[in-house]
Amino acid sequence: SIKDSVKLCNFNCSQSQGITVQAIDDSRVLLIALKIDAGSFQEFRCDKDLVLGLDLESLSKILKQGNNEEYLTLMAEDSPDNLMAVFEDKKKDRISEFSLKLMDIDSDVLTIDDMETDCTITLPAYEFAKIAKDMKTLSESLKIVVTKDSVKFNAEGQIGTGSVILKPHTDMDKPEESVKIELNSPVALTFGAKYLNDIVKATSLSSTVTIKLTDKSPALFEYKLPSGYLRYYLAPKFDD
């Protein structure tokens, strides 16, 4: 989900936190924060806190070697040079092993304070992905306007304009189909369509996405994982 936004990432491993990643794209506009709790894994053991510097394109090549039904075990020693990946099928009569070279990655870490939030929107992840993809064909910017009654996605481009308006509703049978708006104050923010299209690559990870918006501040897009999260912080566009 994130390899088109960032190439090199430090994966921080610890017994209490599981695996955490913070990475910023080269343009310094999009920040990715990933947390995979230890409980996400069938087995998780980390005797000593470790930082695994990974090239995501390389990691992706290794992970594609396995089949979906196979068990994956990732292993690194103390002060490792390599990450080991072992795929086993359920009957354990096919085992494939790979070793991925680790890298020293010099990344600066940003401190994200708890933000005041003007509004929080939760909507189906596929719905947000469709809007982001469709609107990018019209304009390089997407404006999100939230009032208590609706959230409006608006694009103005060379060929014309377009907007999608969603109204809050609750689907009792399929809660993940609901659209929720929690509003402290109305907000109108503009974002780069390119970055929104990077963010929606996480769509398959979660049925819903939660968007937190605050006037003249970065937006938070959160995809909840079964035990953890993938968060994107995106700086908005506005006049200085």
């Binding site: 506009v29 870490v109 940003l110 401190t111 501040s217 700086a235 908005p236 566009k237 506005f238 200085d240």
Partner: peptide, 14 residues
């Protein structure tokens, strides 16, 4: 046209 902001403007470096 509005100017793309960067995150450094909002978040501190550690």
């Amino acid at each position: 046209t509005q100017k793309q902001q960067t995150l450094a403007r909002f978040f501190g470096s550690q």
